[in-house]
Design a protein around this nucleic acid. Sequence first.
DNA 1: AGGTATTCACATGAAACTATTCTCTGAGTTAGG
DNA 2: TAACTCAGAGAATAGTTTCATGTGAATACCTGT
Length: 423
Amino acid sequence: MLNRRFLLVKLRLTLWVKLLGEVEEFFEQYLSQDSIFSNKAALQAQYIPNQIVHREEQQQQVARVLAPVLRLQKPSNLFIYGKTGTGKTLVIKQVLQDILKVATGRALPIKIVYVNCKLKHVADTEYRLLVQILRDFGKSLPTTGLPTEEVYRVFYAALDEQPLQLVLVLDEIDELIGKTGNSALYNLTRCNTALLKTRLTLVGICNNIMFTDGLDPRIKSSLSEEELIFPPYNALQLQSILQQRSSLAFRSNVMTQGVLEKCAAFAAREHGDARRALDLLRVAGELADRAISSQVLIEHLDEAEKKLEKDHHLEAVANQPRQYHAVLYAVCKLLEQRSSIFTGEVYSRYQFICSSASMRPLTQRRVSDILGDLDILGLVHAPILSKGRYGRTRQITLPYGAEVQSKIRSMLDESLALQHAEH
DNA sequence: AGGTATTCACATGAAACTATTCTCTGAGTTAGG
DNA sequence: TAACTCAGAGAATAGTTTCATGTGAATACCTGT
């Protein structure tokens, strides 16, 4: 008995030492090879390059609209539309940076506040938005508990402490409206009537061009005194953007023929999203680096595309609450047997799963919403289908391959910790 | 044959409710002079 | 008497439930030829 144990321990130890040897060897090799990156940050979304290619015109226009601020006159409010990855945020940040540079040089009382309204629990409600802005003024307020009026009082007081030209940039403003309705924007657009010394200029950025349709016309007219649309990049433009960034990010001669072209083509297919193109290139670079290759090859790019898609799905699933997991699990289980299913079936399976995971089941109304949410997240495909006399429901399928599916299923298994096997 | 009424199985909207997190306020308690 | 503690009220917010209404096309039924 003791002998056997000894042998087992010895075996484990040798395995470990062997593994250690391999890992060590990998590290040695990794270090001996120079990284193919020279400045990886240049491929990240936050990076602001010195020159923004294919957006010169928009840059000029934004600058022209906001220029009066330097003469301490209030510029028109500006509204910017454009799909994700069309350079809206980049352009506005660049222009504001320049304005600030000139202003600080001449000690002009100009302040710029940038808020991303999408950030959950940070600036996605009227209250939180104000608190977030106030933080820029060095005032900290509780995250809850105060009446909104009180927060406004502090807000006005802080803004009016001394004469100031304030430019407030609200990125992804549609998120704010979606959640809180018109009131937040209405109050902000009317801010200038309540302020004595300070002038507030609003710059709204939004991905959804249809967004203003549901907006109160009064807000709409005051918010979009000037409008600017950012068109998507085409494949050629994406290519030159990638060219610019890759020359900053990678060492010379790292790119093989055709990688940038293919990368641009991938992204152009998805409505010209430059952010996605850069992500793709970065991941391809990382994969090449990890494989201790001295060049980024087409294979790395293909692999990167798969990895990005898989990571995107897995991350999205991991971030969902438990009830969403239960619904998704019901969908996965039912789709093991059939190619498409309907809401009612999902609900009854979901109830069963809830009982085996000892969770209190939600109502069908709520589950219907959850299915809609999962559809928006791209975790299920659930278009509404009318079956004539047999009713109207969602036809649900899964939009990803078997490999991702099984990963997701095991992730859900773990999260739900189902006691009795759910077959 | 062609028209229109019905029917199904949910989708969708609105309002109300619940639970959580947090601040503010004032009453009660305690410690120190 | 000042400092501290603690419960209760009030507010914002997220997540749900309840109730009511809407929806689109297959099918059933009716009408006129």
